[in-house]
């Protein structure tokens, strides 16, 4: 044991310099040429930062596309999911109340049409996206609140749809923040 302790201490000290020092520095230097210098990409409207492109934020106003429910309350400094089991009775009551709220705000929508991503909590509590179906279901409400035709809103959403990777792999989705910023620009 004894003859191993000293090399172990020295070797550990060297790995500290190697990884915490050199490796971290290499990645940090590369970050200086990455988007927004490694600070995270921000979205700017009228010279003001209104959010991070990758991080979802709360949209609950009738005139905006709603984002997904968040167990973290969209606090980007405390990400978390609900961690509820899908068989938990209290959780199912919570989901039911989300359905009811949605129906009150969207009277033309039938319950069977609500896609599940709009009434379930995301994993991080910061999901920036909703599914295309979840965007479409909100057209009527937004059109009425904003007095814009549904066709215009549809055209806007079609523009914002992010296709699967290379058109082949993964899901189709819409970034809610970018979509709502475009929506605000519509006359």
């Amino acid at each position: 044991m004894k003859q191993n302790i000293l090399p172990a201490i020295k070797l550990t000290a060297l790995t500290i310099i190697f990884f915490i020092g050199i490796y971290t520095l290499i990645i940090w230097i590369v970050a200086q040429v990455a988007p927004n210098n490694g600070f995270g990409e921000t979205v700017i409207v009228n010279n003001k930062v209104v959010g991070y492109k990758l991080e979802g934020q709360k949209f609950s106003d009738d005139k905006y596309f709603w984002s997904r429910p968040s167990a973290a309350g969209y606090n980007a400094a405390a990400s978390s999911g609900s961690n509820k089991g899908t068989t938990n009775p209290d959780y199912l009551k919570d989901v039911q109340s989300k359905i009811d709220t949605f129906l009150v705000h969207n009277p033309t929508v039938k319950k069977e049409e609500i896609p599940s991503d709009l009434i379930t909590y995301s994993g991080s509590g910061l999901d920036p996206d909703i599914s295309v179906a979840a965007a479409k279901i909100q057209f009527n409400r937004i059109a009425k609140t904003r007095n814009i035709s549904e066709e215009k809103i549809n055209a806007l959403v079609e523009n914002q749809i992010q296709k699967p990777l290379l058109g082949l792999f993964g899901t189709e989705k819409v970034n809610v923040l970018l979509l709502n910023i475009e929506l605000d620009k519509l006359k």
Partner: peptide, 25 residues
């Protein structure tokens, strides 16, 4: 998708979405 959510007559076009992110599915 979750059979309990299905029992509430909710569409699950993607599947079970509780605790999941839309960009992964």
């Amino acid at each position: 998708g979750s059979s309990n959510i299905a029992a509430m007559h909710i569409a699950q076009p993607l599947g079970s979405m509780e605790g999941k992110e839309v960009r992964f599915g």
